Simulated scan of single mutants.
Amino acid sequence: MQLTRPDLARILDRSVGRQPTAELGWLGQPPSRARVLRERVVLGPAASLAATADALFGWHVHRGAGLIILPTGPADVGTTVVQAVRVGPLWFAAPCRVVDVVRTPDEAGFTYATLPDHPETGVESFRVLRDGDRLVFEIHAVARHDFWGSRILPRIAHRVQDRVTRGYLTSARG
C-alpha cells in the first residue's frame, strides 16, 4: 500500500524468483478463514471462445477491469504478473504467478496464485467455456486477508475485490 503509483517493474523483478503463497488445491478445498467467490456471466451472441481466450491470455480482460498490469508475458504456466489498483488515495500492488492453464476446444483459461507482498493469499481462476449453446466467462477465487489493513477492515477489502471482479466480468463481455 502506498500513496504513489507503484513501480511495477521493480516489484515484478523482485517477484519473479518467489514462490506462490497459496496452492491450486485451494479451489477445491478452501482453507479456514478463506472467502470463496464464484461469478459467472453469459457472453453475447457475437462472442467467440477463441477471441475471448485471446483477450484473457493477453491480459486484456484484466486491463479492461481497470487494473494496471505488468506481466512477464502472455498468461502461461510460470508467467509472473504484477497488478496495481488504486483505492481512493492509496495504491495496492498484487504480484501473482500463473500455476495452471486449460486450453481445449470447449474451454480456455488460467489460474494464478498470489506471491509474497500481495495484499491477500489465494488463488483465482478465469475460464471461458461452452455451456450448451452458450458461451460463459467464469471466475472462481479463494483468498484470505493477510494484509493488516484487510484483516482490520474486511468489508472494504471485499468491496475492492468485488469491484475488480465486476470489472473482469464486464470486460469479458466486451
Rank of each mutant, 00 (worst) to 15 (best):
P6H: 01
D7A: 08
A9W: 00
L12E: 08
L12K: 02
R14G: 12
S15P: 04
S15V: 09
Q19N: 11
P20R: 00
P20G: 01
E23Q: 14
E23G: 14
L27T: 09
L27V: 07
Q29T: 15
P30N: 07
P31L: 08
P31D: 12
S32N: 12
S32F: 08
S32A: 14
R35V: 14
R35Y: 12
V36Y: 07
V36M: 10
L37D: 14
R40Y: 05
R40S: 13
V41S: 08
V42M: 10
L43N: 04
L43A: 06
P45F: 05
A50S: 13
A51G: 11
A53W: 00
A55P: 08
F57A: 11
F57H: 07
G58W: 00
R63W: 04
G64K: 02
G64C: 07
G64M: 04
I68R: 15
I69G: 03
L70Q: 09
P74L: 12
A75H: 01
A75E: 02
D76A: 13
V77F: 01
G78R: 01
T80I: 07
V82T: 06
Q83F: 12
Q83Y: 14
V85L: 15
R86H: 09
R86D: 09
G88A: 12
L90G: 10
C96P: 11
C96M: 12
C96T: 11
V101K: 03
R103K: 13
R103M: 12
T104I: 08
P105D: 09
D106F: 07
T111S: 09
T111G: 08
Y112H: 07
A113Y: 01
A113L: 04
P116N: 02
D117T: 10
D117F: 03
P119D: 02
G122L: 01
G122N: 04
V123Q: 04
S125A: 10
S125H: 04
R127E: 03
V128A: 10
L129P: 03
R130M: 09
G132H: 07
G132P: 08
V136Y: 01
F137C: 02
I139L: 07
A141C: 06
A143Q: 10
W148M: 14
R151N: 12
I152Y: 14
A157C: 10
H158I: 13
H158S: 15
R159H: 14
R159A: 15
V160G: 09
Q161I: 09
V164A: 02
R166Y: 10
L169T: 03
T170K: 09
S171P: 06
S171C: 05
A172R: 00
A172W: 00
